[in-house]
Design a protein around this nucleic acid. Structure first.
Length: 672
RNA sequence: GCCUCCUUAGCUCAGUCGGCAGAGCGCUUCCAUGGUAAGGAAGAGGUCGUGGGUUCGAUUCCCACAGGAGGCUCCA
């Protein structure tokens, strides 16, 4: 048999017999590689291991510890789940089931029950499904690739209306092929035919799929867990039927699965809603209504520190401070376009006097009134108006989430009016400013979304206007070398935008800052300035929120630091503990001296044992616990027990105080 | 809003197969004055989310509603 030549990723060539599969190629390279091989990448296309190679192919072996290998494991696992569900719930059908971050899901529709509605999963169902999945895996069913023509495929999937929509091209499925005329499928032949087969001509499970997959249900699968069943609309549209989605997680090894479950536990521990209660920062009383928070003294103190810092930076950054009221006449929101494009997000109107008033959902209309209050010259531009403006937005009850998604919140909101020529540099400066302030709060890892024209803005502005604004944002991102992804159609109704996301201490991504380009609202509201040429011009308007919302930013900070705020933000920075009650006077003296330096210090008297008072202070995540006893009274020293550090006794009080003052100063200036 | 699950003391949670409501932490008082992560004792604290229904009797079973969690969608 003639040999063929294969090129490997390191450009080395390899001679193998004609008819060699990817799996055999891997085996010829090494036993370890053969064992780890999940799929192969042939000339840029991912293929099953039993794919037969051709002369001249460029082949990469994809292993289970690679991102694509893991993707394939999750993809194959979701097929096994679909098989288990279709078999265990006769009459059910399925929609799409792609791998997602950390796992996979599949959407199902269960048969109509006695109440006339499609059935739903209960938690015990997940256990049954999981058990059946493990049986299917033990059966070592091969994943059999095939291609059908459309007529055949329609017959096979006749009982599965969602699959027919995908075949017809009406619905997208990220894991199936979309070539017209050819329908790719993967079959898992069962060891025994199903009692109620639901695919014409097949004894068991088959799905629309472009693959590739692991060789059999036994290979690489098994390190998975079904997490939860939820509702999800078909094609994401609430006008469509609600399907039952099962989420699962799957990994290449048991250790990886356990590590993932452990990460979830760690994330739950730093949930801001839990920490907010534990640390007595804020609460969401039922009496107040959904999505509304009250700030307790400690939370309010941290918030005030954040806001003070923000004000200081904005002052230095050339912003002018303004205030606008919380409600406004509906005519204002008609002029701004909010009632036309954003009414769903607004609280209902209050009727009074000669008209209707709305709680403001955004600060821009108010700021525009300030710009328009008198004639403006180009010499004033860019004009940067800043307000910590509280807005109210009607969010549907199911979407509320602690501080992250809330109905009343405060934006550190700025509107910048500039000439078209200034826009590019101004956006760049804004991005730079935003990142600098975010760094001061301890974030170092940033990425961005560039969101383009949404469908709802079809009638707003011109194609050229949107394109130019989007290019302007794009070039600012590139100039600042900020990695970004394009979110097609994700823009606001008045223009495209950049959203800045940060990664927190455990790698989660949060959307915070937003910079929005608006070439529309100024026109709508008749804003003008007199240019150098003496003529009237419409300014470009930029919307910018840095924290995004003070509440969400606070929540993200709380989770980022797991409640252990850096010293400059900690509600209590130093706690002084007298060893015995005759040390109380000295303890108060220490606290007073620290307070005189602007530090936040308190004293807990010796009414409990020292060890317990230390334990409580640690639970409050206070940066410094000072213990003072006989030696300290005599020598004017303190015993320093820092958060996450070693105890240091006999430190002169002045030395300690200066150390903390310097630390706070460093934290505030390190990022500039 | 829709789907699934949940709701017992301030917090974390037991429990009652329908028969007087439990623990730990926290809180109050007393004792104890202890050099680096829980000293002791006593006490207060709950219409078992709300409203209906079934029942001799409902915190427990059924229904509705409210609130919460996780999703869908949306978003700062």
């Amino acid at each position: 048999m003639a040999d063929i030549t294969i090129t490997l990723p390191d450009q080395s060539k390899r001679e193998v017999p004609e008819g060699t599969t990817i799996g055999a190629l891997a085996a010829s390279i090494g036993r370890g590689l053969a064992k780890a091989a999940v799929i192969g990448n042939v000339n840029g296309t991912e293929r099953d291991l039993n794919w037969v190679l051709d002369d001249g192919d460029v082949v990469e072996i994809v292993t289970s510890n690679s991102e694509r290998g893991l993707y394939t494991i999750r993809h194959s696992t979701t097929h096994v789940m679909a098989q288990a569900v279709l078999e265990l719930f006769p009459g059910s059908t399925f929609a799409i089931g792609p791998p997602v971050e950390d796992g996979f899901y599949y959407d199902f529709e269960l048969p109509v029950g006695s109440d006339g509605k499609p059935g739903t999963f209960v938690p015990e169902d997940l256990e049954r499904i999981e058990t059946r999945m493990r049986e299917i895996m033990a059966e070592t069913q091969p994943f059999v690739r095939d291609e059908l023509n459309e007529q055949e495929a329609r017959k096979v999937f006749a009982g599965h209306r969602f699959k027919l929509e995908i075949i017809d091209g009406e619905a997208d499925d990220p894991t199936s092929a979309t070539e017209p005329g050819v329908v790719r499928t993967y079959e898992n032949p069962p060891s025994q035919p199903w009692q109620t087969p639901c695919f014409d001509g097949y004894p068991g499970f088959i799905d629309l799929c472009r693959g590739p997959h692991v060789p059999t249900t036994k290979d690489f699968l098994g390190h998975f867990k079904l997490m939860r069943a939820t509702g999800a609309y078909w094609r994401g549209d609430e006008k469509n039927p609600m399907l039952q989605r099962i989420y699962g997680t799957a990994w290449a090894s048991k250790a990886d699965l356990e590590a993932h479950l452990h990460r979830l536990e760690e994330a739950a521990k730093r949930d801001h809603r839990r920490l907010a209660v534990d640390l007595d920062l804020l609460s969401f009383p039922d009496e107040l209504g959904g999505g509304l928070a009250v700030w307790h003294p400690k939370g309010a103190l941290v918030r005030k520190l954040m806001e003070d810092y923000s004000r200081q930076r904005h002052h230095e950054g050339g912003y002018e401070f303004v205030y606008t009221p919380n409600i406004a006449n509906g005519k204002l929101f008609e002029a701004s376009g909010h009632l036309g494009f954003y009414a769903d997000g607004m609280y209902p109107p209050m009727e009074m006097d000669n008209g209707v008033y709305y709680p403001k959902p955004m600060n821009c209309p108010g700021h525009n009134l300030i710009f328009g209050a008198r004639q403006r010259s180009y010499r004033e531009l860019p004009l940067r108006l800043f307000e910590l403006g509280t807005v109210y937005r009607y969010e549907r009850s199911g979407t509320l989430h602690g501080l992250m998604r809330i109905r009343g919140f405060t934006q550190d909101d700025s509107h910048i009016y500039c000439t078209p020529e200034q826009a590019h540099d101004e956006i760049r400066g804004l991005l730079n400013f935003v990142l600098s302030v975010l760094r001061a709060f301890g974030f170092t890892d940033f990425e961005a979304n560039l969101s383009t024209r949404p469908a709802k803005a079809e009638t707003v502005g011109t194609d050229e206007g949107w394109a130019q604004a989007t290019d302007n944002l794009r070039s600012a991102l590139e100039a600042e070398e900020l990695a970004y992804e394009v979110d097609e159609g994700g823009g606001a109704f008045y223009g495209p935008k950049i959203d800045v996301k940060v990664r927190d201490a455990i790698g989660r991504s949060w959307q915070l800052s937003t910079i929005q380009y608006d070439f529309n609202m100024a026109t709508r509201m008749g804003l003008e300035y007199i240019g150098e040429d003496g003529a009237r011009h419409t300014p470009i308007m930029l919307h910018r929120a840095l924290f995004g919302s003070v509440e969400r930013f606070f929540g993200v900070l709380l989770e980022h630091y797991a409640g252990a705020f850096p010293t400059w933000l900690a509600p209590t920075q130093v706690r002084v503990l007298p060893v015995r009650d005759d040390h109380d006077p000295y303890a108060y003296e220490v606290a007073d001296e620290l307070r005189a330096l602007g530090l936040r210090a308190d004293v807990i008297e010796a009414s409990e044992k020292l060890g317990n008072r230390i334990r409580k202070a640690k639970g409050e995540k206070i940066p410094y616990v000072l213990v003072v006893g006989d030696d300290d009274v005599a020598a004017r020293t303190v015993g320093v027990n820092p958060r996450g550090g070693e105890v240091d006794r006999g430190v002169p009080l002045d030395t300690f105080a200066q150390r903390v003052v310097d630390e706070v100063d460093d934290q505030l200036h390190a990022a500039r």
